[in-house]
Simulated scan of single mutants.
Amino acid sequence: MRVNFERSTKINVNTKKERTLQLMLNVIGILMFMGILIRWWTVPFAVSKDLRIYYNQDFQMPLNECKEFLAFALCTAGIYFALVNVYFLGKTGRKLVYTILVLLAAFTFSMMLTLLL
C-alpha cells in the first residue's frame, strides 16, 4: 500500500503561507492606521525657515473636524480589516472581496464625477 504524503504537505505549506500573509497584512494595517491617527496630534506642528519646530494654532483642527477625521479613520480601518480577513476565508471570500473592491471603485469614480460637475 502506497501513501501519498506529497499532497498533504502542499496543503500545510499553502495554509502556513496564507496565515503568514494574513498576519503581515494585519500588522501593516495596524501600523498604517496608527500613523493616520497620529496625524491628528502632529498636524499643528510646523517647521520654520531656520528648521525649528513650532506649534501653529492655525493648523489645529476644530472639534467638529476632529470627530469627522476620527470617524473616517475608524470606518476605513474597519473596512480594511474586514476585507483582509474575509479574503482568507476561502474561494467565496475572495470573490466577495473582489466584488466589494469593484463596487468601491465604481462608487469612488461616480463620486468624483459628481463632485466635478
Rank of each mutant, 00 (worst) to 15 (best):
D58P: 02
N85M: 11
V27K: 14
I11P: 05
I53R: 09
M24A: 13
V47D: 02
T20Y: 00
Y54H: 11
E18I: 09
A105E: 01
G29N: 15
K95F: 01
M32F: 15
W40R: 09
F107I: 10
R2V: 04
K10W: 02
M61F: 10
G93N: 06
Y87C: 12
V102D: 01
Q60N: 11
I53M: 14
A106V: 13
L51A: 12
K95G: 04
F5T: 14
L37M: 11
I100R: 00
D50M: 05
T108D: 04
A73F: 06
N14L: 15
M61W: 08
L21R: 10
F107P: 03
L116F: 10
Y80Q: 11
K17D: 10
F69S: 07
G78N: 07
F72N: 08
I28L: 15
K49W: 00
R52M: 06
R19T: 04
A46W: 02
N26P: 09
T108W: 04
L63N: 12
L96G: 03
R94I: 05
G35Q: 08
E65F: 12
I28R: 11
W41H: 07
G29T: 15
M1D: 06
M24G: 05
N56I: 04
T114K: 14
R7T: 14
G35W: 09
T42C: 03
Y87V: 10
L101Q: 07
N85F: 08
P62D: 15
T99W: 00
L113M: 09
K49G: 05
L96W: 02
A82I: 06
V86K: 14
I100K: 01
T99P: 00
T108K: 03
K91W: 01
F69H: 06
A82N: 09
R2Q: 06
R19P: 01
L96V: 04
F69N: 07
